[in-house]
Design a protein around this nucleic acid. Structure first.
Lengths: 199, 199
DNA sequence: GTCTATAAGGAGATAGAC
DNA sequence: GTCTATCTCCTTATAGAC
């Protein structure tokens, strides 16, 4: 990969503008200006505004959540379920707090009801990946008599929903200790949750 | 009020377009066409596109949630807490499912990160109204030894978050029995929640 | 209060020189 | 690969007749 990589720069700046102003509210002109080139030069890399959007999406979809959140270190903690859940939630929130992921979640929330070309962004699809991981975890816990015999789907929902709402609510404010505040709320949530399901 | 009320019709159609395409994605031209007048006629009622947006917001903010959800009939059920919570959640979801409220939630989610004029839409503010009502309810339950001694803030969060996520996730799909499906998921959530806090 | 006409500028996109 | 120049269309908004 050579420097400067204009194409990559375009998608980065485009993500900035899309996630702040929405797809319709961002213009090729702004993006080109931010990149430091003229509008017409954009069309050497993408044939349309829509294609920039699709490139951003495709880049995002190429990564899977579980590989970014779950690692062996974390899975070793499964014999201490409360600690595991706390650390799992913490890792998740920290991941959601990375700059690129924050921008993408903002874009997702903004564009979930519009159609850009043939593509529809789905919050459900986004959350479902996490629900799937949680379902596996809670299935194991129920099977091993660590957790009460609830339907794993319900447990996944109860664990996931407050996390996601807390996270999305803290996307706007840009306070310094924003993350610490979120982590504190999340810690209380996980604590309540574990208290509700432990045997 | 005389008929036809063009001004009201404009805000209604504007809400349609804003909530489907976003503020930036909707045009005066579309709105005027939907109303059945020319663009220029719009400016007899509103001095700018932004003012239409602000009128929609101001109309919305004039109403309070608690008066629409809580009534005496419901409050009489407080001695049967599980039934109360189930009916409370049901009323809430049904309210969220009214056409105008659905449009407004869509608009809120889409425009929460943009600034239209000097106004910022806040999801937190929206959810906080519900959190406040829940906090009162759960404070009472804890005080009267109906519920375990949890922090009412946590209880409000745990009760509210899944409801809101479920509701927002079902705003896109327009299935017939969509509402029944949502109500079923909500019923399970409330059941789990009550099971977790009851003494 | 709505119309026609029009202004003034921004949008996405293309052509062709370098 | 970037530039200047340009096209065409759409945007918000205004002026003035009816």
């Amino acid at each position: 990969m050579k420097y400067p990589n204009t194409k990559k720069l375009i998608t980065e700046k485009a993500l900035d503008y899309f996630s702040n102003n929405g797809y319709a509210g961002a213009s090729i002109r702004q993006i080109a200006r931010a990149v430091g080139i003229r509008e017409s030069a954009i069309y050497n890399h993408f044939k349309s505004k829509e294609e920039i959007f699709l490139a951003i999406l495709s880049d995002y979809k190429s990564k899977s959540l579980s590989t970014k959140i779950l690692n062996d270190e974390l899975l070793d903690e499964l014999d201490n379920p409360e600690k595991f859940l706390q650390d799992f939630a913490k890792r998740l929130v920290e991941f959601w707090n990375t700059p690129k992921e924050k921008k993408f979640i903002r874009l997702l929330l903004m564009e979930q009801f519009t159609k850009v070309g043939s593509v529809e962004l789905s919050v459900t699809e986004y959350v479902n990946e996490l629900r799937g991981i949680c379902r596996l975890i809670f299935s194991e816990m129920v099977k091993n008599n660590i957790a009460k015999k609830y339907d794993p789907d319900i447990l996944a929902e109860q664990f996931t929903a407050p996390l996601f709402l807390i996270r999305t609510e803290h996307l706007s404010r840009e306070g310094e200790n924003n993350l610490n505040k979120v982590l504190e709320i999340v810690r209380k949530h996980v604590s309540f949750f574990w208290n509700s399901i432990k045997i």
